[in-house]
């Protein structure tokens, strides 16, 4: 419950402050958001599995975001940025889906 409140607080801060994102950072933002979503759903699943670990969560979150952004950056430098972005989105999307499916099994037993 408290982490969910934390999420709400973060959303509110972001909506109120409306920070200007530098142009160079904008291509990485969607990828970072998806990587963060992946980490969050992974953490929820771990909580339900009873094996949640805060250190793993933080480290996996940061590394996901950074690695995803790095892959897109590398792709941009090599001229295949959009293709690599697609790859990242596909991989993280599949992971999000199966984690959400597992959460669903935990919650609804279906």
């Amino acid at each position: 419950m408290i982490p969910a409140l934390g999420l709400l607080v973060g959303l509110t801060i972001g909506l109120l402050l409306d920070p200007a994102v530098p142009v160079w950072m904008q291509p990485y933002l969607p990828i970072a958001v998806i990587a963060a979503l992946d980490a969050v759903f992974g953490a929820v699943r771990a909580v339900l599995d009873g094996i949640f670990n805060d250190k793993v969560f933080v480290v996996s979150f940061l590394s996901n975001v950074i690695v995803a952004a790095f892959i897109v950056f590398l792709g941009d430098q090599l001229g295949v940025g959009s293709q690599l972005s697609t790859g990242v989105v596909v991989v993280l999307g599949v992971r999000i889906f199966s984690n959400v499916a597992s959460i669903r099994r935990h919650l609804f037993k279906a």
Binding site: I2, P3, A4, G6, L7, L8, V9, G10, L11, T12, I13, G14, L15, D18, P19, A20, V21, Q26, L29, P30, A32, V33, A36, A39, V40, A43, A46, V47, G50, I51, F52, N53, D54, K55, F57, V58, F61
Partner: peptide
């Protein structure tokens, strides 16, 4: 016990950052 608490300061800070990231992403894009 195999699981740690979900209420540690690190987790909450991380969730705030996540929310911030979502809001920023939504607005910037």
């Amino acid at each position: 016990p195999p699981a740690t608490s979900t209420r540690t300061a690190v987790v909450i800070a991380m969730m705030v950052v996540t929310g911030f990231l979502f809001a920023t992403g939504a607005q910037a894009l």
